Simulated assay, not measured.
Amino acid sequence: MTRALFICSRNRLRSPTAEEVFCHWRDVETDSAGLAPDAVTIVSDEQIAWAQIIFVMERTHKSKLAKKFGSRLQGKKVICLDIPDRYSFMQPELIALLEQKVAKFLRP
């Protein structure tokens, strides 16, 4: 079972979409969070410890994550998907982009 954590800014559009899309994949467990103070779910130490692979939507997310969690990211694969904040929740174009960029990391 692969545990994948999806992170965006406010955990309202991109990361919850990814969580929903990939939670139905065989042998994949998902969670999502945001890095902004007003995120629906703010990324926690527990989520970082739980995740085997962490997907961030933008490069700025990766640097904020490193700044906030530092050494707790050691041994974790952190992947930047380069998906801008211009999609709505479950938008078909966002789903297609996520599947295209994430699938290679979650397939055996």
Rank of each mutant, 00 (worst) to 15 (best):
W25R: 11
S63Y: 11
P92F: 05
A36G: 09
D38G: 01
A36K: 09
I54A: 05
S63M: 10
W25N: 12
D31E: 14
G34R: 02
L81F: 04
L73G: 03
K64H: 07
M90C: 04
L35T: 05
A49P: 08
D82N: 15
T30P: 07
S44N: 01
R59V: 15
P92G: 08
E20P: 04
S71A: 15
T60A: 10
R86S: 06
D27W: 09
A33I: 07
K67P: 05
A49D: 14
F55G: 03
E20H: 06
L73W: 04
K76Q: 00
S63K: 09
A96M: 07
G70Y: 00
K67Q: 13
E29M: 13
A66I: 11
V43D: 12
A49T: 10
V28M: 08
A33P: 08
Y87K: 03
Q91E: 15
D38R: 00
Q52R: 14
V28E: 09
H24G: 07
Y87G: 06
D45G: 09
L97W: 00
I79A: 11
T60S: 15
F89K: 15
K62S: 10
D31S: 15
V56K: 01
H61R: 04
R26K: 12
I53F: 01
P37D: 12
D38T: 02
M57R: 04
V78F: 01
V78M: 11
D38I: 06
V28T: 09
D82Y: 13
A66Y: 02
L94V: 05
I95Y: 00
D38M: 02
L98M: 06
K76A: 02
K77F: 04
T60N: 12
Y87L: 08
L94F: 04
K77H: 12
G70D: 09
R26H: 10
L97S: 10
Y87I: 11
F55A: 02
F89Y: 15
D85C: 04
M90I: 11
F69W: 00
G34Y: 02
L98C: 10
D31H: 10
Q74A: 10
L65R: 03
F55T: 02
I95F: 01
A36T: 07
I48Y: 03
S63I: 07
K64A: 07
E46D: 11
D45K: 12
L98P: 01
I83P: 05
K64Y: 05
A66S: 13
G70K: 03
P84G: 08
P92M: 12
K64Q: 15
S44P: 01
Q52H: 09
I54L: 03
R72W: 01
M90F: 04
T30V: 02
G75M: 06
F22P: 05
M57S: 06
I53T: 09
L98F: 05
R86N: 15
L97H: 02
C23E: 15
V21T: 05
R86T: 14
D85S: 15
H24W: 09
D82A: 12
P37Q: 10
Q74E: 15
R72I: 01
S44F: 00
V21E: 08
V56S: 12
F89W: 10
D82K: 08
F69E: 00
T60K: 15
P92E: 14
K64R: 12
M57E: 12
I48S: 08
E93G: 06
A51D: 08
S63C: 08
